[in-house]
């Protein structure tokens, strides 16, 4: 009897006990919100093949954060400006040189990032580089929460309203052009929401891990379904669950929040990769064996 009761109360306490602390309640809902925003965008990032672009933008925001603090403006503005600026620079350099895109991205984002490091060591500010790099949702300030929520809400609104055009742009930009739509605008819309999402996730995951939040949920969902609507739902479910549970783990075991969120996401990914009903490793092997058997049967009847 006691054991059974324990089985119920222990997880209950595990979940409820942290909620008495205001900062933790806050951290949980903020990271759940960030998880939602990242998950929605990650479907587009996965389908468009923009993971490296996401990595680039996340690193490129560093100088923006430093400059914002130096000028006394909200960090989101500077971060967005530099993140978006990096993507424009990438597009420009790619069109003007004979370099392949991955080389251009590599040069630009490390350049921006290095510039940020230089600034952070030279401009006097109270920025903790560690927090920018690895996130600090447990110690997030009210001001930062406001900025996170604003950036995230704009992102969600833009994607929601333009979701069909953005999906068409990812799938068949030529057709979009052929029916007279402005693909240039779509390209920059997707880039700006990418930069905005990174601004949203900056405080939670940190710039090193934000790319995981931008790619992994979409990748998990892509392995599990053939329909975009379902892909969105699965992506959101995996991402929000990881963010909430990750924050709990971070509290209970005293580990890095961003780290535990991304480890959880990665575990979900590994599970999906192995057990996905159609595209999982097991399913594919099973299918191959079934095909072989069928072939053998056909061969033996002849």
């Amino acid at each position: 009897m006691i054991d059974l009761l324990d089985l119920v109360t222990m997880p209950w306490n595990w979940l409820v006990e942290p909620l008495q602390y205001g900062f933790l309640r806050q951290a949980i809902w903020v990271s759940a919100f960030v998880g939602l925003v990242c998950a929605v965008l990650s479907c587009y990032v996965t389908l468009k093949g923009w993971s490296l672009m996401g990595d680039a933008v996340s690193h490129a925001v560093v100088p923006g954060v430093v400059v914002s603090y130096a000028l006394g403006i909200p960090f989101a503005i500077g971060a967005f400006a530099f993140g978006f600026g990096a993507t424009v620079a990438i597009g420009y350099i790619k069109s003007k040189t004979r370099l392949k895109e991955d080389a251009v991205i590599g040069v630009v984002f490390t350049g921006f990032f290095a510039f940020g490091l230089v600034l952070v060591t030279k401009i006097p500010s109270n920025i903790d580089l560690f927090h920018i790099l690895f996130g600090n949702v447990l110690g997030i300030s009210q001001q930062d929460i406001i900025q996170t929520v604003i950036a995230g809400t704009i992102t969600l609104a833009v994607i929601l309203l333009r979701r069909k055009d953005l999906l068409l742009f990812c799938f068949d930009p030529n057709h979009a052009k052929a029916i007279g739509l402005n693909t240039q605008l779509m390209y920059y819309t997707l880039l700006s929401v990418l930069a905005l999402t990174i601004v949203t996730a900056l405080q939670t995951a940190g710039i090193i891990l934000v790319v995981a939040m931008l790619v992994t949920p979409g990748a998990i969902a892509y392995l599990l379904t053939d329909r975009f609507d379902r892909m969105l739902m699965i992506s959101v479910a995996a991402s929000v669950t990881s963010c909430v549970l990750g924050t709990y783990f971070s509290y209970h075991f005293d580990i890095s929040t961003g780290g535990s969120i991304v480890v959880l996401l990665t575990l979900f990914f590994v599970a999906a990769m192995i057990f996905a009903p159609k595209y999982g490793i097991f399913a594919q092997q099973f299918q191959q064996r079934a095909n072989k058997k069928q072939l053998n049967e056909v061969a033996s009847t002849h």
Binding site: L47, L161, K164, I179, D226, F228, R230
Partner: peptide, 21 residues
């Protein structure tokens, strides 16, 4: 790409639709 045949054919109509398609 996770789109159905119906979705693809519907893309042919986007040019006639409103801002939200």
């Amino acid at each position: 790409f996770p789109v159905s045949v119906f979705d693809v054919v519907m893309m042919g109509r986007y040019g006639y639709m409103n801002f939200f398609r």
